[in-house]
Design a binder for these strands. Structure first.
Lengths: 231, 231
DNA sequence: TGCGTTATGTACTAATTGGTTAATTATGGG
DNA sequence: CCCATAATTAACCAATTAGTACATAACGCA
């Protein structure tokens, strides 16, 4: 059972006896789990080291100190969930369908990446102190706004969407619904029961979140065009 | 400057030389700041003790251990923000105005209590592990749902609101918008700039959040009745 | 006024934990 | 084949930090 996960047999790329990049990735992967699970101060370097194929010394060799590792993990987290929006090819869809698709994608994508969500939660607890420098992260989120802006413009040009809407605020709203769903599921379900977090409940929430955004955006005379959600 | 905050002069209730309840409250207050600022594992008992008028020994005397203190602080946080909804006297308003008021209240209330928000964030990082027992917390949130349910029923009875809406889901949506606004302000403003978090930006968000909920709830033929928001 | 109980101050400890020192081995270029 | 450099190992350390032992002082009640 233990040998099943060994990479010994792979001779395709790495010599196995020394594999710096593999070690780096190994550390990052384990560290992401540890940090997202326990926070910055809750995470234990020894624990990370133990669950790695390598040793504690290597962590410091590659990442300097705990904060350095945390920062790289944070960047990694943002990087892992980037893009996606662009692959949706929203341009091919009518604005309503496009916005609907974008909302559902965002909702589901957040849901599929709880580790990322937790890293962002942790970082917010720290007032975003470790993000101030990394320009990388800033750049990664720009596409989301741009896609949204294009859809919005098209919808407004076609007389479907209301005027006076801004992409940033809309992104904020979509993010709020999608993020909260994951970030607060523990306390929310403890207080109100877990009905909203079953598969069926989540499907409903996803549909209704998109529904909410569309009803917010659409001109009243086009409310009839809202997708049913059973697609 | 230091004497200004002393309670020495008050002879109304407590003897000042020994004041168990005051000491308890002092500890809880400081601990709330420390925990909400640094999380459970990031918080330092010594730091809490130092910023208290009393000593570390007292913390253990009254709260047993770190987790015990954290748990009491968490309960305290929920208790401090409870109620409120009931004082809004929504029954006296028409359903649309009532829902609008409830949304804005929730939004502003969250915004006014960042320490509470942060405690909930921290607790979610810990998967709500420390909340499982305290029935108190569960009870505190029931009123919010009940108020919402009453408004919803009235709106539906009057043919203003759509059918098929549930109070719980609506509460989830309102909470999501209100909570995210505070919880993620650090990372969000670092990525997208602080425009949404100026006084003016927050007024707009509050208005638009309520707007969003109303547009979601209202039957299309009543969308004209949405409050302007300049009340 | 005496006395059990509650509250508090001082000093200490045991364990955890982030980080390091120094020696060793592989690697790849000349 | 040699050697500078990158990668890795193993043992070690100093500081932090949650938690305690013990003595003692105030309280309130009889």
């Amino acid at each position: 059972m233990k040998d099943a996960t060994e990479v010994t047999k792979s001779k395709e790329a790495k010599p196995a006896v020394r594999d710096p990049e593999g070690v780096r990735r190994d550390i990052l992967t384990v560290a992401m789990e540890e940090f997202s699970q326990n926070g910055l101060s809750g995470a234990r370097i020894d624990e990370i080291a133990a669950r790695t194929k390598t040793s504690k010394r290597m962590i410091y060799y590659y990442f300097g100190d705990k904060e350095g590792l945390y920062q790289r993990v944070l960047e990694e987290a943002y990087g892992k969930v980037r893009g996606g929006e662009h692959d949706l090819e929203l341009d091919g869809l009518d604005p309503i369908a496009a916005l609907d698709k974008l909302c559902r994608f965002t909702f589901d994508h957040h849901r599929a990446n709880p580790d990322f969500i937790r890293m962002v939660m942790v970082e917010n607890i720290h007032h975003g102190r470790h993000m101030q420098m990394s320009k990388t992260i800033r750049d990664l989120n720009q596409p989301a706004i741009e896609e949204l802006e294009k859809v919005l413009r098209r919808g407004q040009a076609g007389g479907l969407f209301r005027e006076g809407l801004t992409p940033l605020e809309l992104h904020w709203q979509i993010s709020a619904l999608s993020f909260f769903n994951v970030s607060n599921s523990a306390t929310f379900s403890l207080i109100f029961g877990g009905d909203l977090f079953t598969d069926e409940g989540q499907r409903r929430l996803s549909r209704h979140a998109a529904d909410m955004v569309l009803r917010y955006v659409l001109r009243p005379d086009h409310l009839g065009s809202i997708p049913t959600g059973n697609s």
